[in-house]
Design a protein around this nucleic acid. Structure first.
Length: 622
DNA sequence: GGTCATGACTCAGAAATTTGACT
DNA sequence: GAGTCAAATTTCTGAGTCATGAC
């Protein structure tokens, strides 16, 4: 059995943790206080250990077999490994899809020996049952490890495993960049497996090949300790390019695109770029009115391509309607090679079939109904009233076109961005998303957090909002942005259950409150009857009062939690929080509302936004 | 000047893993 | 104080954006 930890030991561990955090803070590289490098230079010194390669394939044990057409077949090592990839995924819906199965089978056969290939002709005749069962048992065993932890060997096993992982992290997880130790984001080479695209990807199921050192390019300083390739291997190339941020790269075999090993989000290189991004978006704030006026004028242009550009910009920026402001915030929409990826679109690549025009709809005029698959094959569905000029133009663009034709046939992202950068240096379609997201957060926070109440009822101080209520307001503001950016998630599998659990907790707490209240009443009654002389009874009343208060607070907290969770069912807050919202807005809000920053940002988020946490004053305006 | 390929980087949700609250 | 389980966090890697340079 695990030896019990004494109170002293627990306290010691706590102190150690605090000390470690303080040390971390002390040693943090405050790069935002330093001078920036000349244009294009990303680093002056870079040293690292190269990427970490996944372990070699371990052949199946003798009792686990593959069967073809009912007969046991001993596969070659290469074919067996790929068979395992498929068997591992059998519980997943992917393996039932026709495209996935066909792609897999085709690529699998390429890995087979001639003999295997002539025998194994149909996927339906393959029986991966035993391999699948073995894999499931392995996963189960790992899951149950904590239950069996009582067995000393298991504890040791876990410890060894943890230590081994730590060793890998220490060795490969960090680099030295300009005298500072920086964490690497993805230091592991992606292991081989079956490609899983998103949505209806034409290449799903294809074999993602094992990457060898001979495929990898290393990037580091000339004068640094050059990473040593695994024994018996060599690198494809070692280069010393300080105008890029990556440490290693390789070309993957599915799309032929390049994969990179880069630094963690809390690094200088990523942080500085992030800061810059928000500064560009803030610059847009000062000239957005002019830009809007310009594209509203362009809607009447004689040039068709100018008109298309104006309508596209209108989609990318926003739609202003008299009472409510409805925003669209579409992505730019680059062209994609047909048949190479799932059929998804953004603004410039919209097709006629993706929008429906309604002269009137739900008491609004000139409504555009959008229905298309965007990035990651996430559906974008929205009905938005637009100004007449935009509506008329859309009708014009759609004239004599087939559903599959491009809506903006005279426009692409390159033209759009060229135009934008002529209006403001650094301006691209993407900046509008950042700008609109951040400005929305700022507005929503102002509206939602009691400012009005404070103004009209100065006796009600912001403190009267509990931290839980303030956080609900923050999450609602965050949610408004996530909806704007169409950041969706699949509802968690356990959602209904966890909601029901929470509800029953609320009911229990309510009952408890009723009970506490009646006990308080009773205590008061008794105290009154005995007069104020009885100190014991007076103390009881105080205690009961406290109990009621505590109960009420807990109930409120649970109710707030329930509201928050329900509203969050299909919305992913993380993406906007991490990528679109200027952290300085949140930090300033925390300061103003006296909410600790760690209620908003967890440890790694605080690391990522350390620059903002450090420099932001309470009065910061985006 | 337009188009096309390529490279480098940001953004994205799912899945795996860890944490910590509750019983 | 241990066991359980949901929630939080981290990891993973696919999918975009956008600039550049060759033709």
């Amino acid at each position: 059995k695990k030896p019990k930890r004494t109170k002293e030991e627990i306290e010691e561990a706590r102190q150690l943790k605090i000390k470690k955090m303080e040390e971390e803070e002390q040693s943090r590289w405050r790069w935002w206080e330093e001078e920036k490098y000349e244009d294009g230079v990303k680093w002056r010194f870079l040293e690292h250990s190269g990427p970490y390669f996944p372990p070699e394939y371990q052949p199946l044990p003798d009792h686990v077999n593959f069967y073809y057409d009912g007969k046991k077949v001993k596969l070659s090592l290469a074919a067996e490994e790929v068979a395992l990839f498929f068997a591992q995924m059998l519980d997943h819906e992917y393996t039932t899809k026709k495209v996935f199965r066909e792609n897999f089978f085709q690529d699998w056969r390429k890995e087979m020996t001639d003999e295997e290939r002539s025998l194994i002709q149909e996927l339906d005749k393959c029986d991966f049952g035993e391999i699948h069962a073995m894999h499931k048992a392995k996963v189960e065993a790992r899951k149950n490890m904590s239950k069996e932890e009582k067995l000393v060997c298991n504890i040791q096993f876990r410890k060894v495993l943890k230590e081994a992982n730590q060793k890998i992290l220490d060795e490969y997880g960090y680099c030295l960049l300009d005298h500072h130790r920086e964490r690497i984001g993805n230091f592991k080479i992606e292991p081989p497996g079956l490609f899983r695209g998103r949505g209806e990807h034409p290449k799903q199921g294809k074999l993602k090949k094992r990457i060898q050192p001979e495929d990898v390019i290393i990037n580091c300083s000339k004068e640094s300790r050059i990473p040593v390739p695994p024994a018996g291997h060599r690198w494809k190339e070692v280069r010393h390019d300080n105008t890029v941020t990556w440490l290693a790269s390789w070309t993957e075999n599915i799309q032929g695109s390049i994969k990179y090993i880069m630094l963690n989000a809390n690094s200088k290189l990523k942080g500085e770029k992030d800061w810059e991004k928000y500064e560009v978006a803030r610059k847009l704030k000062s000239c957005v009115d002019n830009i809007r006026n310009q594209y509203l004028m362009d809607l009447k242009s004689r040039e068709m391509c100018t008109r298309q550009r104006a309508v596209a910009l209108y989609f990318i920026d926003k739609v202003g309607v008299t009472v409510v402001i409805l925003k669209l915030a579409l992505r730019a929409g680059n062209e994609k090679e047909e048949g190479e990826t799932a059929d998804t679109v953004g603004c410039c690549s919209l097709r006629v079939e993706h929008i429906t025009l309604h002269d009137t709809l739900d008491a609004s005029e000139c409504v555009v109904e959008f229905d298309f698959l965007g990035k990651d094959s996430i559906r974008y569905y929205n009905k938005v009233p637009v100004i007449k000029k935009v509506f008329k133009n859309l009708k014009l663009f759609m004239e004599d076109k087939q559903p599959g034709d491009e809506l903006f046939d005279r426009l692409n992202t390159s033209l759009l961005n060229k135009h934008l950068s002529s209006l403001m240096p650094g301006l691209t379609a993407k900046v509008f998303r950042t700008y609109n997201a951040s400005i929305t957060l700022q507005q929503q926070l102002k509206e939602l957090t009691n400012v009005i109440i404070l103004f009209f009822f100065p006796c009600r101080l912001p403190e009267s909002d509990s931290v839980a209520e303030k956080l609900l307001s923050y999450n609602r503001a965050n949610r408004a942005v996530a909806i704007l950016c169409n950041h969706q998630r699949a509802p968690p599998k356990t959602f209904d259950q966890s909601m029901a659990n929470l509800q029953s907790k609320i009911e229990a707490r309510k009952e408890q409150l009723v009970l506490a209240k009646s006990e308080l009443k009773q205590a008061k009654k008794e105290a009154k009857a005995k007069g104020s002389a009885d100190a014991k009874l007076q103390a009881l009343v105080v205690r009961k009062k406290m109990a009621v208060k505590r109960c009420e607070e807990q109930l409120l907290k649970l109710e707030v939690q329930a509201t928050d969770r329900e509203e969050n069912k299909q919305i992913a807050l993380g993406t906007s929080k991490l990528n679109y919202l200027d952290p300085r807005i949140s930090v300033a809000w925390c300061k103003k509302m006296e909410v600790p920053v760690d209620k908003i940002y967890n440890k790694s988020q605080r690391d990522k936004f350390a620059w903002a946490i450090d420099m932001t004053e309470v009065g910061f305006e985006f």
